Computed example of a mutant assay.
Amino acid sequence: MSRCEDPESRFKSWLDEHGGAVSKVARAYTFTNEDRQDLVQEILLQVWRSLPQFQGRAGAATWIYRVALNTALAWRRREHRRQGPRRSIVEIEDLSVAGPDGPQQALQREVVERLYVAIRRLPKTDAALVLLYLDDLGYRQIAEVLGISESNVGVKLNRAKRALSELMKEDSRGP
């Protein structure tokens, strides 16, 4: 992207390239499809409002992740105060492949849903770290987004993976 490019074109281009990342962040911080849609809109609004401050020191993906995570954390705090703790409603994104829904696709959707439920139970910074990792960002990009050192990313990521594994095991055993 050239720095001369108009903000609307830049925003549209970034939305095409990084819209999936915004959706993933929103999914990890919400329980319902309606909340997820609201948070996506809030994130996109913040990206638009913050666009004039983008100076190009970080890549577009890193910058958008940072805006998305900060917006999601603030949104979650506001919603938690406003509504109090909420129970998860099982909603699974469409992971279907062409053809009828078979047992393998149902199992895959169940595992993905359990993963997102477990991610929501992690501390906020660990959840953000896991999301960035699951989106195939490298340690350097994760460090830039979260404002920590690359070596700290490795240490925190290992701890978060262990915690996530334990949460997944607890979930599979049931109450």
Rank of each mutant, 00 (worst) to 15 (best):
G84S: 10
V67I: 15
S23F: 01
V67D: 02
I64V: 15
Q83N: 13
C4P: 00
E110P: 03
T62R: 09
T30Q: 12
D135M: 12
T30A: 08
D94S: 07
E110A: 14
M168T: 03
R82G: 05
S149A: 15
F31N: 09
V130H: 00
R81K: 13
E8F: 01
D6H: 10
I89Q: 00
C4G: 10
P103K: 09
Q105N: 04
L131N: 09
W63K: 08
L107F: 03
R76M: 11
E5Q: 10
A26S: 08
P7N: 11
V47M: 04
C4E: 15
S2Y: 14
A127W: 00
A128L: 01
Q41L: 03
A28W: 01
L95P: 00
A68C: 04
R120T: 07
R114N: 12
L157E: 08
S88V: 14
Q46G: 01
L115R: 14
R66T: 08
D6R: 14
L134K: 01
E170F: 04
V153H: 02
R3K: 09
S96W: 01
Q83T: 15
G19M: 05
E93L: 00
I142H: 03
L39T: 02
D94I: 05
Q108E: 13
L95Q: 12
I119K: 09
K169S: 04
D126C: 06
S13P: 00
D16G: 09
R27P: 05
R140C: 05
A72D: 01
R173D: 10
E34Q: 07
L164W: 04
Y29H: 11
Q41H: 01
M168R: 07
V112M: 13
E42R: 04
K24P: 00
L122A: 15
R173I: 11
S96L: 10
T62L: 12
Y133N: 14
S165Q: 10
R77C: 09
R86F: 02
R140V: 05
Q55E: 13
G99R: 03
S13Q: 07
L73F: 15
Y116V: 00
W14R: 09
L164C: 13
I89L: 06
A163D: 14
V153P: 07
T30P: 11
E166C: 00
I64S: 08
V25Y: 02
R27I: 04
L69P: 03
D94K: 00
T32R: 07
A61M: 09
L167E: 14
S9N: 09
V25A: 11
E42I: 01
V97Q: 05
G102F: 01
G56D: 11
E166Y: 00
S165M: 07
E150R: 12
S149T: 15
A60E: 15
R82D: 12
S165A: 11
D136Y: 02
G59K: 15
V117H: 05
N152A: 14
Q53G: 05
